[in-house]
Nucleic acid binder design. Structure first.
Lengths: 317, 317
DNA sequence: TCATAGTATTAGCATTTGCTCAATCGCTCA
DNA sequence: TGAGCGATTGAGCAAATGCTAATACTATGA
């Protein structure tokens, strides 16, 4: 650790000399007393370790227009649109960074607040972009259980990753994502360790969530929280999208009778009294995002240009 | 403006594709439908226009140690130490960026606050690194007059530059930096436009200042606020450093009888009830920083490694 | 002491980037 | 209409960067 820390220290220094002071790698090598190649390694290590944060501080007109249009069309309190890289296959590029910036923005406030955190690939990517911060005044509460079907910690439950980066009071949910029966869920929720956490989640000032698909790569199915049969039953019952374990039909209603009665997650916090921000982009998520917007399941959105444009084109449904 | 804005828009997009999405300039050129060289130009334009903000998000152990040591030695409430580039001749490299980040940090808070702003090269460089922000809840007050001896706006009075970047309520001081007599100063200060500004300055929650030398390149002299004779007289009277127009001797006392009676600046706000952060680095500023620290003229500091180390070496005085 | 596995370092090369200079474009004004 | 002039563009090249494969080093255990 000390060795590794020392290495990162050097990497940070090299990256500083490179990006901030504008040195070439040769100059850095000379200053740090290493070879040119080692200097290059240090810089690229710093980049790959996420030590180097780049952001483009200019409101691109088209993105601003889209974000304004989305805010008006769906009466959102918050909306951020990042550029699209047409060739990239990533489903988080840009959105992750912007979400991280918004999370940091909230955590940077001195007055204590409660932040709710959902789950998923996008949110995980966002959390990986967080800076290390000290904010013991805040409470961060997971909205979903963190126990995978095999008993291990669910990988895409981001709260533990977040705890590595941010010093705050964390409230994970030591629960499965979906209980085996409605009764079990009630029992679990009544536990003295769980109840206060659920109450905290309901009081969140701001909440960040992802939006899940229910196609063949549905995260809920891929991660083993539901069976293939349950997935198919959900789809037959009209479920199209999933948010923190809850599945919704195209009208934004919870699909009844299959898994929702057993979902152990907290409900989505109130959109009347708090901010619920979804981060999602990409064609596959489009129907889900639309449902979340039209069903008023969210009142904040981080997405990319291409998705924003599609959301503003009413034609294809 | 529309043309220029459109250009910056493209530049921002190119920079985003380059730095965030990780494209090469050839790929960017293809996506934007321009030549490789044009793409390169757009990216470098974005960099030179300051659209690209890079920061290294890793606490370099040595810098942290120094900042902690400085905090303890001089009972500071705030201290930030940035790396030193041994070859750089800049007197602002790193410190400007770190100061800008700290200013942004304060301005990002939702609760209204009063920020005092001094003057000088370092502060100006810091302000140039600020992002554009909307924060109408805050009030930003200049501690020094902004009228140069020739009647024009004083260049190193940073409040107008800051107003270009940040949307807040600004309170400049339509005064010369040094009045022609003690009496004139009293008259000026009694003016209905000035008095409330001075009162505001005294209530600042946080204040950012630079530290000026009194050698032959003393900013006060170079910018024409004092004559060569006055500079020499100040030095003979023991003055070593200058903060927002006020000159101090090695014990941190105001030097009497030469210019201080005529300085039209607001006093340095209280270090008991507010945070006063100085940004300065470099050998030439060392005596000034020392005086500010030992004389308790400040309770916050942004500096670089080399300067920090020198400040912690008591030997040479 | 020596073998060994894993890690770190170096050399060399292909790619990418930044810069200069000459050519072209587009706009203004006579 | 066309000369003049600044701004923009593209070609070519030198510098900087990133990658790969080969080599050296280090720590561990027999």
């Amino acid at each position: 650790m000390a060795v590794n820390g020392g290495k990162l220290d050097e990497a940070a220094r090299a990256a500083w000399l490179y990006y901030v002071a504008g040195n070439t790698q040769d100059q850095i090598a000379a200053k740090l007393g290493v070879s040119r190649q080692s200097a290059q390694r240090l810089v690229s290590l710093a980049v790959s370790e996420g030590l180097v944060k780049v952001h483009i501080d200019y409101p691109i007109a088209h993105c601003l227009d889209l974000s304004k249009a989305l805010r008006e069309t769906y009466s959102l309190s918050f909306c951020e649109v990042v550029p699209t890289d047409p060739d990239s296959t990533s489903t988080t590029l840009g959105v992750a960074q912007a979400t991280a910036a918004e999370i940091e923005n909230w955590l940077g406030r001195p007055e204590p607040l409660i932040m709710g955190i959902g789950t998923g690939r996008t949110l995980r990517a966002a959390v990986e972009h967080l800076s290390t911060m000290e904010c013991p005044q805040h409470r961060i509460v997971s909205l979903t259980g963190n126990i995978a079907p095999d008993g291990s910690a669910a990988y895409y439950n981001v709260i533990f990753t977040m705890a590595d980066k941010v010093k705050a009071r964390f409230f994970p949910m030591p629960l499965p994502v979906i209980a085996s029966s409605e009764k079990e869920r009630e029992t679990l929720h009544a536990q003295p360790m769980i109840r206060p956490t659920l109450e905290l989640a309901a009081k969140a000032d701001v909440t960040f969530i992802g939006i899940g698909e229910l196609d063949d790569e549905a995260p809920l199915y891929v991660d083993g929280f539901i069976t293939r049969e349950e997935l198919q039953a959900l789809r037959r019952a009209g479920a199209v999208t999933e948010i923190i374990g809850w599945t919704f039909d195209p009208q934004g209603r919870l699909v009844e009778g299959i898994t929702n009665e057993r979902v152990a997650s907290a409900p989505i916090p109130s959109r009347e009294t708090s901010l619920v921000i979804a981060s999602a982009m990409g064609k596959k998520k489009l129907p889900g995002i639309r449902i979340a917007l039209e069903g008023k399941l969210i009142n904040g959105l981080v997405t990319d240009e291409a998705t924003a444009e599609a959301l503003l084109t009413p034609s294809l449904r």
